[in-house]
């Protein structure tokens, strides 16, 4: 008992984290045992086995491929365009003053609400879904890059100016590294929104995709399918988020990231 307590004291943080997950899992299992109907709820074990079954039979692979294409094209374009526009807005005073009302309006508009319109314009094929992912993911990336450039201390730029550093080097050596934590935050927020974009896009007439499977589950009361699709989408969000965090720690070790929006 003494030894056990010692181990707990030493590895307190990890033990508690594992304990927390265990409590949530037990609560989940208890809820499942109480509901006891696969039409409404499934336990954690069933979600794991069902997901494994989907992979083993290979029927989910096509959906993963389609959703992956939508996400990567949409998110990729959103990242490039978002960082580019954010930089321009941050650097150019004319642009900033001129487009600031537009940015506020874009920030306040729920971009998901534009999804039906995108479907009208682009049809129900892959392009429309990519555009939906793009417009949902791009907003936080633009806004965070813009805020990041503005947050770079003026004294660094004054220093560079007094040493006659060329503009291009100011961009590479000061503005981009200085705004990197904000850009990364924008990219992380964009991931979660992009995944919502995938699901919303596939709601409007798709033939494959994780969101499509989710709605198929909803229409056929197939709860295990829905929950494993939701778990996969959520897991993807967490994994990509961690990947970006690791990249940031490599690229900008001088600042530790804060969760912010």
């Amino acid at each position: 008992m003494e030894a056990l307590l010692n181990v707990y004291q030493q590895q307190r943080k990890w033990m508690n984290a594992i304990l927390g997950i265990a409590i949530v899992t037990v609560f989940w299992m208890f809820a499942n045992w109480q509901v006891n109907s696969e039409l409404f709820f499934v336990g954690p074990w069933r979600v794991v086995t069902y997901t494994y079954g989907l992979f083993a039979s290979g029927e989910i692979l096509d959906d993963l491929r389609i959703s992956g294409i939508e996400f990567f094209w949409g998110y990729g374009v959103a990242a490039v365009a978002g960082i580019g526009f954010g930089m321009v807005f941050g650097i150019s005073r004319i642009f900033r003053e001129f487009f600031d009302p537009w940015l506020s309006a874009i920030y306040a508009t729920p971009s998901v609400a534009l999804a039906p319109l995108i479907i009208i314009w682009f049809g129900v094929d892959l392009t429309a879904k990519i555009v939906i992912v793009l417009i949902t993911a791009v907003v936080p990336i633009v806004l965070n890059t813009y805020t990041g450039v503005l947050s770079v201390g003026k004294e660094f730029q004054t220093l560079a100016n007094s040493f006659c550093v060329p503009q291009r080097q100011i961009l590479y050596k000061i503005l981009i590294p200085g705004s990197l934590p904000y850009i990364v935050t924008g990219l992380r927020l964009g991931i979660s929104r992009g995944i919502v974009g995938v699901v919303v896009g596939e709601y409007f007439g798709a033939y494959a995709g994780l969101g499509y499977q989710l709605f198929k589950g909803l229409d056929t009361f197939n709860m295990p399918l829905m929950m494993s699709c939701a778990a996969m989408l959520a897991g993807t969000g967490v994994i990509f988020n961690q990947v970006i965090l690791v990249i940031e720690r490599r690229m900008a070790p001088w600042r530790d990231t804060q969760l912010q929006e």
Binding site: R188, I195, V196, V199, M226, C229, A230, A234, G237, V238
Partner: peptide, 10 residues
């Protein structure tokens, strides 16, 4: 960090 809106159908 997860997209919680995917829980909407549930």
């Amino acid at each position: 960090a997860t997209p919680r809106s995917v829980a909407a159908p549930l």
